[in-house]
Amino acid sequence: MMTAILSLGAVALVAALILGWASRKFAVVIDKRETEIVAILPGANCGACGFAGCASYAAAIVAGQAKLNRCCLGGNDMIVRIAAVMHMDAHPPLPQKALVLCRGDNRATVMKYRYLGLRDCNAAQLLADGPKQCPDGCLGLGSCAAACPFGAIEITVGDLAVVHHERCVGCGRCAAACPRQVIALVPVSAMVHVLCRSHAKGAQVRRYCDTGCLGCGLCKKAVPEAYVVERFLARVDYDHADQAAQAVAVCPNHCIIDLAVHQLEKTEAQATL
């Protein structure tokens, strides 16, 4: 009885002594500002700031290795609060959202072959450059949706990725995950977009897609300062996009979209039901 109590007590005592000594000897000094900033940061660990997670970003801020405005998630308030902790000036970034630059779902486009492999765009892209005739269109296997930490991307019934903008924070993880660079980060304020990335010539696009940009230049003719047409592909010049909405109606293939009147995520999802 006594030996049991004493021996077990002795083990516990020795262990406690060693642990107590170790916690002093190997104590890690943490900057108080770092814990404060970690508490302010959203804690999503999305990696959009370029660091492994919120804790590493906070450490980099305190070490003076990172700017305060790298986090696209918390908004201006958060940056102002971090700036207060660091006694620095705040410079909020330009807010951006992800946008899928393709409207060619499986009814609008022609397929090269029927793909039955892994449900992953990168895998599909390796097989004869993807199952779509169009070399630039969205493959719709959802690599972007899997990469999104916020569940903002939906794959429609027509195998097309659509970004739900009320959830998107503009971290750009989807754009990095896409093997075809179909997803772009666009300014939140911009409403009019050309939803095509194909530089193929008009006659070629017509062969495999009902809704691709032909490069005809009618939009540029309608509103010259708002559009740029390069190598058979139009894009909106977001710095002079005030009048861009006027060209939406002239596009023969309906690949120019005004998000103010046309809610992409709803119409795309419904259209394919």
């Binding site: 060693i18 642990l19 170790a22 916690s23 190997f26 104590a27 890690v28």
Partner: peptide, 10 residues
Amino acid sequence: QFIEIMLHKT
């Protein structure tokens, strides 16, 4: 616990 403390430092 000891290994954890050690690792945190080293």
